[in-house]
């Protein structure tokens, strides 16, 4: 309640970003309604079938989109902090690297790289420190959770090499 100013600043121009949000909501409403229209009819005693609730949600989303347009035009959205793009990109890169490579290079290396890239986003530029540190940490986590507690974590060359080292010689 306290954040809404009683007297709006008449000089504030329409909020472009808020209009984008409104557009996103309207598009979302369209997608939900389109998807619901494709659902085939199954005999239902409930009278409300699998498409009823999606339609209701689509209507509400559209309504919220219109409401957002009104608030955007009136400049009712609160002030935003300026954002820096680079750190966000570093973190997104880290997550992308992990999800694309984890099945091939194993949990430890992929997660170690993620670790280093996130640290980079927060200003740690020394990759020759952060990558090895991240990998060692990830190996420790892998050993505890994958070997010790039988969680399924993808393994790669590093984990296999480690397990070979630890394997008792007699079974060879």
């Amino acid at each position: 309640m306290t954040t809404e100013p009683l007297h709006r600043n008449p000089e504030r121009r329409p909020d472009r970003a808020a209009l984008v949000i409104a557009a996103v909501l309207l598009v979302l409403a369209g997608i939900v309604a389109w998807d619901a229209s494709r659902i085939g009819g199954v005999v239902q005693y409930a009278r409300i079938g699998p498409q009823t609730v999606p339609y209701a949600i689509a209507i509400c989303l559209a309504g919220l989109g219109l409401w957002t347009i009104v608030e955007a035009l009136r400049g009712d959205f609160p002030e935003r902090e300026p954002q820096e793009a680079m750190p966000v990109l570093w973190i997104v890169a880290g997550l992308l690297v992990q999800l694309l490579t984890i099945r091939f290079i194993g949990f430890s290396i992929a997660t170690g790289v993620l670790f280093a890239l996130v640290a980079r986003a927060f200003g740690e530029r020394r990759f020759w420190i952060s990558i090895p540190f991240g990998i060692v940490l990830s190996i420790a986590v892998w050993v505890i959770f994958a070997r010790g507690l039988s969680l399924t974590l993808p393994h790669g060359p590093l984990e296999d090499a480690l397990m070979n080292l630890l394997r008792p010689r007699t079974t060879a």
Binding site: I102, T111, A119, R120, A121, F122, E124, S130, L137, L153
Partner: peptide, 17 residues
């Protein structure tokens, strides 16, 4: 920088597991 790197390690670990 280490704390948030660690948070993401843990956050993804749960999902991967």
């Amino acid at each position: 920088h280490w704390l948030y790197a660690g948070i993401l390690l843990f956050a993804t670990l749960g999902t991967i597991g």
